[in-house]
Amino acid sequence: MTTPAKLSLWSVVRHILLVAGAVVMLLPFVWMISTASKPPSEVFSSELHLIPHQFALWENLQTAFAKANLWRFLLNGVMVTVSIFVLQVLVALPAAYALAKLRFIGRNALFALVLFGILIPPQATAIPVFLLLHKLGVLDSYAALVLPFTISVFGIFLMRQFFRNVPDDLVDAARMDGISEFGIVWRVMLPAAIPAVTAFGIFSVVAHWNDYFWPLIVLNSEHLRTPPLAVAHFRNAEAGTNYGALMAAAMVIIAPLLVAFLLAQRRFVEGIALTGIK
């Protein structure tokens, strides 16, 4: 790799390998778009071709939107993920501030609980939480989708780590200026923590937009379905008969996140990589 000739040779090999890998990674997406653009006659043909002879994307999209209330499902997805995120921030930020900047009896114990909470996978608490929501009579509602996720111990942990790096002087200055402790959380800490909140927001929204397990458990009604649940139901109803429309529906469901990702890649990668810490 020290001589230019070797360097360019390696560079060629590197690109060949990476392009080959990229093809495998992209294949499902390409095949999805390709199938979504084909009329049924071409979908059900053993002859392989990527570019449809007859372009039918529009028709497939129309069928998808006609057979399933996709707008409604997308709207559900937005409402649920946004409510979860907003509530998570409302709950986590004050706690993170107290854990990072205030001294009080029980602080270490509480932080230990937070760390322990991070270890608990969501599936582990599913049955009791389900029974609790059943007792409360809120199953099959937006509340059932949102309530269990209003507490994000991971969010508390993350924000606490970030807040610890905010200078104490800034907090003291706010106190001298007459801002209350609650005020400090929103007027001083939140603006200072915007990058961390953004990353956490992406993490949270992506996780809950894509979540299938929980909506599957608590929902019955069609009008409450979140996007993943909608695709699964669409597939159960249409599989084997109308792949073009199914692929079109899948495209619609993954589009919002993928577009957002392509627009703000760095932030998304940061946000998702947070899962690694979890």
């Binding site: 199938t35 993943p228 529906a249």
Partner: peptide
Amino acid sequence: YRTIYFLPVMATLIAMAVVWEFM
């Protein structure tokens, strides 16, 4: 490259599972 390889992580797994099923 990073973007391309990261795409599957972002895409709703259920939707992509349906695509895989057809593939």
